[in-house]
Design a protein around this nucleic acid. Structure first.
Lengths: 195, 195
DNA sequence: AACAATTTCCACCGCTTGGTGGAAATCGAC
DNA sequence: GTCGATTTCCACCAAGCGGTGGAAATTGTT
């Protein structure tokens, strides 16, 4: 049913995983198609046959990353607990697979440049998550009407995401120095999503 | 008094500035000595004459960045107001020179990889700032003994820095969407450094 | 004006880059 | 087993890479 042959799909998969590691280590510009292909045990022209060009490979890698990181089954209504659990689960899994974290940290930082090939994609990603969290915070505040937070739900959501990503980078630079999951829990508490 | 001739120093300076822009845009691995030299109006072997190799150039760029970003005259005793003002001033200046922000955002993210040439340097930088801020928070708490913060001063300082850097990246990806200085002010308030 | 120290550029090295074209090997449905 | 679609590799391209060596030009000092 899926496109192509089974061998081809397997090769594509192995290329994407090698590419994720390479982009995480050296960034989009610093990683080379040849080294990625070599790591995947394949000629670099095979890589290009499957993905066409370097940018397309990058976008495929991001798509694969999100499929890994996002839970497959989104519930009908998104609760505060669901988001908090999502953050916690992600933080826990990140501790085991630092490569995946490094990947999006580097790409997001690179994408601050206006001509980065993944800029639009990462912008949309961010906006989606911000919207969902802001909406959740907003409905959470409706229940407890004594919140008294000077920040709007959108601002809170943005700060939450920014701090979350900042903590990942900090942890990568100083491994083990911080109990990231605990700090994230504290941040969520401040954002009125927990306790 | 300084080393070399005046023309040489001027050239070095112009190379460092071009390099800062290039590293900010493409990262350490993605930027090339030739393109940096070209931008500075100089042959790439002239660049190498001045800096020896690519890594040395990167470290020179970071040193120059810090000289730009840090106030020349550190006061004897560092007060909470001094740090808060420093953050505010930096946030304000960053708004005008996004390149400088982009530079350290990308390098810090890249330096999450264990073999990055600037990893040690950026680690030390981080540790220094963390220590100073943590100490300030700690002495600030001694005055107001009703703080009740579940986070230790070191944790607070780390979260503050991580969030600060995360906000820079967020702002670069979504220019103008956030009032970064205002949000930083709010974060400082929560860290007991303001009001 | 003379002079060494410094700066600059040119030519070159071996190697890698992203991308193309085509021929051979493999796959999978019939 | 046949046969078309798919996959894979090899050969090649122009361009760029970081780095070296040396010769010419410039600078500052006396």
């Amino acid at each position: 049913m899926p496109e192509g042959y089974a061998t081809g799909r397997a090769t594509k998969q192995s290329i994407v995983e090698s590419a994720a590691a390479a982009f995480a280590q050296k960034g989009f510009y610093g990683a080379s198609l040849r080294s990625i292909a070599r790591e995947a045990g394949v000629d670099h022209s095979t890589l290009l046959h499957h993905f066409g060009n370097k940018t397309a490979l990058l976008l495929a890698v991001i798509e694969w990353h999100d499929a890994q990181a996002m839970p497959a089954d989104l519930p009908e209504t998104i609760s505060a607990e669901f988001i908090a659990d999502g953050f916690a689960a992600t933080a826990a899994r990140n501790a085991e697979t630092p490569g995946l974290v490094q990947l999006l940290s580097v790409l997001t930082a690179e994408a601050g440049a206006e001509n980065h090939p993944a800029r639009e994609t990462l912008q949309r990603r961010h906006e989606l998550v911000t919207t969902v969290i802001a909406w959740t915070i907003s409905s959470q505040r409706a229940e407890h009407e004594d919140h008294g937070d000077p920040l709007s739900p959108e601002e809170r959501a943005a700060v939450l995401i920014a701090s979350w990503e900042g903590l990942q980078v900090y942890d990568a630079l100083h491994p083990g120095k911080l109990d990231v999951p605990a700090l994230v829990r504290a941040m969520l508490r401040e954002a009125f999503l927990l306790d």
